[in-house]
Computed example of a mutant assay.
Amino acid sequence: MTTVLLVDDQALLRMGFRLVIETEADLDVVGEASDGAVALEQVAALAPDVVLMDIRMPGTDGIEATRRIVAEHPEVRVLVLTTFDVDEYAFAALRAGASGFLLKNARPDELVDAIRTVATGRSVVAPRVLRRMLDLFAPHLPAGGADPSAHETDPRLRSLTPRELDVLRCVADGLSNAEIADRLVLSATTVKTHVGNVLAKLGVRDRVQAVIVAYECGLVAPGRNRTSAPGGS
């Protein structure tokens, strides 16, 4: 059973989400909150598996609430809700540690599938969508451009092997494991192992967070040409 906490300042939306979620035998709504401050209290008291988080709320907004939930309760996954598919607030929530975002007008089946996905530790943001968001909001990123020596100058990347750096670049390009295997001429099993090692060494929870680190470190640059295959061994 996957437990869910609903966080939205609109009672009717919470009711609608509850009706959809509770029709599923493996999902259970354990609580509701109308703002981020109450959400933090509810997470501490109820320990839900997934928090369905609105972003724009009075008082403590969804971004700050997400940041604190991820820091204080790393086992809890946050799925943020947004009105637009490219939204600077949704991007900020991803940087704060959310496992993905979902449009408020998503179909009921998309909602329950997204909850199940983040509950297993995966993200629900397609890598190419994330890349589009990162490109759009490049001016807000600390890194100004691709730095060939990023793996030497940024402490977050120093533990990665040359091949793991190649894999991280491919992940940041929005490639699936199968596509990475084709590009780097590796087996799918080897790629999966490398991806797991990259996530562990970076100390991130999923591919979304790994992509953000790659941009912040300057390993890849927003809008660059991604057609050439990276080298490495």
Rank of each mutant, 00 (worst) to 15 (best):
A221T: 07
L130M: 09
R207C: 11
L219T: 13
R224K: 15
T66R: 05
G145R: 15
I55D: 02
L165R: 11
G196A: 03
L184Y: 06
L6Q: 10
D61C: 03
P148K: 14
L130Q: 05
P139H: 03
D166Y: 10
A71S: 05
G218K: 08
E32A: 11
M53E: 04
G223H: 06
G231C: 08
M57P: 12
L168N: 00
P162Y: 05
V50K: 05
Y89D: 09
A119W: 06
V125H: 10
A98T: 02
P58Y: 12
R224G: 14
Q10Y: 14
Q42R: 08
S123N: 13
D8N: 06
D113H: 13
V220Q: 13
G100Q: 06
T83R: 09
V38I: 10
D173W: 07
V125Q: 02
S176F: 00
T60C: 13
L130T: 06
D135K: 05
P127R: 03
G31T: 09
R156P: 09
D28L: 15
N177A: 15
D173G: 01
L6P: 11
G196M: 06
L141N: 01
S233K: 12
I69T: 09
R18D: 01
D85E: 14
T190K: 05
Q10C: 10
A143M: 05
N225Y: 14
L175Q: 00
D85R: 14
V191Q: 02
P58K: 13
M133V: 01
D109S: 12
A221S: 15
T227Y: 14
T2C: 00
R183G: 03
N225P: 14
N225R: 15
M1V: 12
P74Y: 10
V167W: 03
D206I: 09
P222T: 15
P48L: 10
Q10V: 12
T161Y: 02
I115K: 00
P142G: 08
L134D: 05
L94Y: 04
V118C: 09
V7T: 01
A126V: 13
L168H: 07
D206Y: 08
V30S: 10
H194W: 07
R156I: 11
A126I: 11
I55Y: 03
R18P: 04
T66D: 04
A143V: 11
L202H: 11
V4A: 04
S228C: 13
V185R: 13
A126E: 14
I69F: 10
A106P: 00
T117N: 11
V213Y: 15
L46R: 07
Q42G: 09
V70Q: 04
E32N: 07
Q10L: 09
V204K: 01
L5P: 07
G196F: 02
R56Y: 09
E32L: 08
A138G: 12
A188W: 12
G121L: 02
L40V: 05
T193M: 12
N197V: 05
A221L: 12
F17D: 06
A221C: 08
L219S: 10
T153Q: 15
L40N: 05
L160K: 11
E75D: 13
H73W: 10
A172W: 00
P74T: 08
L94A: 06
A229E: 08
E152R: 12
T66N: 09
L103Y: 03
Q42T: 06
D173M: 06
R169Y: 13
A65F: 00
V191L: 01
R205F: 11
P74V: 08
R128D: 14
A106R: 02
S149P: 09
I55L: 04
R107I: 02
